[in-house]
Amino acid sequence: MSASATPTPLESAATAPERKRWAALRDSDTLYSFLHSKVTIAAAIVTLLIICGALFAPWIAPHNPFDLREVNLINSNLPPAWMAEGNKDFLLGTDDQGRDILSTILYGSRISLSVGILSVAFAAIVGIVLGLVAGYRGGAVDTVIMRIADVQLTFPAILIALLIDGSVRAMVGGQRNEEMVFWVLIFSIGLSFWVQYARTVRGSTMVEKSKDYVLAARLIGIHPIKILFRHVLPNVIGPVLVIATINLALAVILEATLSFLGVGLPPTQPSLGTLISIGNNYLFSGEWWIAIFPGITLAALVLAVNLVGDWLRDALNPKLR
């Protein structure tokens, strides 16, 4: 960085905060480490592709698989376009109802990703807050929170999800609609993941709270909530990010399992998991593309997200830079 071309961040701070932010980003070690890891770049591109595909599905998908006027049973079970009986309108073939596989993947990853991200966010927020409070306060508060977590862990995630789904059904009866299923899924998946966050955050918080920088903040009368979120949280968030990325993959898979068991999303609104389980029925009768292409997408998504998470862990740790 030459002294004449780039003002030091300190000088620019007084003149233009906007420019300072850009300069800080350009000079940052995070960007440098990103640009020097080819695996991370590839993983980020794959993640972005799938996320963009999911986000813009209504515009880029060649067909709308949920519009019954567009779906034609004549087109059912067509192989991918490059195969002998393939149709160039359906690049990755069609399923048993004549829906375009590429389009259902795009729409399906939309549902999978939103369930995954929202349930992980829900679990992370609950877990982080409870973990911070338990670790910082200690004593009875800690005991109560962590015993609840222990009890929670004795139930398998699927059991919790079935339980919640059952209770919701009993409560609302026949008014259970697709949108409600979506939120019930997020709630039940999130509820089965929060314990990990709480335990990790609690452990790190107990270490951090006795460090002198926390004492220094207490000394000048900073409010405990402010200490927790401004001092302790940035120092315990690293492991949480890694857990979150692994959990994102787990959540997508758990959602697929639940959909398969009939408490998840119906085949009229299929997620990637639903697509795989539909295709599973046809795997041995020769129509491999129905299960394989959603499966590849799911695997690529999970792997890419994990790789990005791994890089993020290293990049966000200032001691490893």
Partner: peptide
């Protein structure tokens, strides 16, 4: 009006700030 300087300079400064 009261302040404190701590023993370990490694732990007394928040590493993320």
């Amino acid at each position: 009006r009261i302040q404190m300087i701590f023993q370990a300079p490694y732990a007394s400064l928040n590493p993320r700030w």
